[in-house]
């Protein structure tokens, strides 16, 4: 074999290697993709209200009492190694955004929405995918969840409630139908949210939100 031939072979081999690596990387970096979107949207649609009830509801006009809400305090997702403390959180006054707990190993339950006791609506828990300072967050692998995986939420009453994942969706943040995920009507469901998609290193922001929907088992 000539020197020239060997050089050509080496070039070919290097080319194949480069393309193989590129191919593998491209596959590994595929967005999580969306499964069960239709099921998630069906859960959100409220059942039709009964047509004109025969009698008019009458209530004593008492001052509203504090509602009995059971906040989730612990979340367990064995498939992706999540065991996290859940904090009750609200709204960031300055940004009007969901106040995700600053500590990335903790996650936040939206305290204005339904609690675990609710027989309707979406219980929302959000957590960091990661942080520049603290590294990987509790929901780093949320996008790996798939239909049928199990999520267990333990309430402040100590009762562990099991949920089955029915959908995983990825939305560009500007297009995500947040009203649907923060709904207080529709079937009872657990909604887990984190960030994902391409990362804008300059703005230090992910483009997308990953949303996992689970229903009580």
């Amino acid at each position: 074999m000539t020197v020239r031939n060997r050089g050509a072979l080496a070039a070919l081999a290097a080319g194949v290697a480069a393309l193989t690596v590129a191919g593998l990387v491209a596959c590994a970096n595929q967005p999580a993709g969306t499964v069960g979107a239709e099921e998630a949207s069906t859960l959100a649609s409220a059942p039709p209200t009964a047509a004109s009830a025969p009698s008019v509801p009458v209530t004593a006009g008492e001052l509203p009492a504090g509602p009995k809400i059971i906040p989730p305090v612990r979340l367990l997702i064995p498939e992706i190694g999540v065991t996290a403390t859940v904090n009750a959180v609200g709204i960031n006054e300055r940004t009007n955004d969901f106040e995700v707990p600053p500590s990335v190993d903790q996650i936040g339950w939206y305290r204005y929405g339904p609690g675990l006791e609710a027989d309707a609506g979406s219980v929302v828990i959000a957590g960091h995918v990661d942080s520049a300072k603290q590294g990987k967050g509790a929901f780093f692998r949320l996008r790996e969840l798939d239909q049928g995986d199990t999520v267990t939420a333990t309430g402040s009453d100590g009762e562990a409630r099991r949920y089955r994942v029915v959908a995983r969706e990825e939305y560009v943040k500007t297009k995500i139908p947040l009203d649907r995920y923060f709904a207080r009507d529709g079937k009872p469901r657990l909604t887990l949210i984190t960030c994902g998609g391409p990362f804008d290193a300059k703005a230090r922001k992910y483009r997308d939100n990953i949303v996992v929907t689970a229903v009580p088992v």
């Binding site: 970096n29 955004d97 995918v129 990661d130 520049a132 780093f140 923060f182 391409p198 230090r204």
Partner: peptide
């Protein structure tokens, strides 16, 4: 009491590390 007047938060910002970025 009249219910159902709630609005969703403006957004859910939950990551600024970039380790989970997808795309190439």
């Amino acid at each position: 009491t009249i219910t159902g007047l709630h609005s969703a938060p403006g957004g859910v910002p939950s990551g600024d590390g970039g380790q989970a970025g997808t795309g190439v």
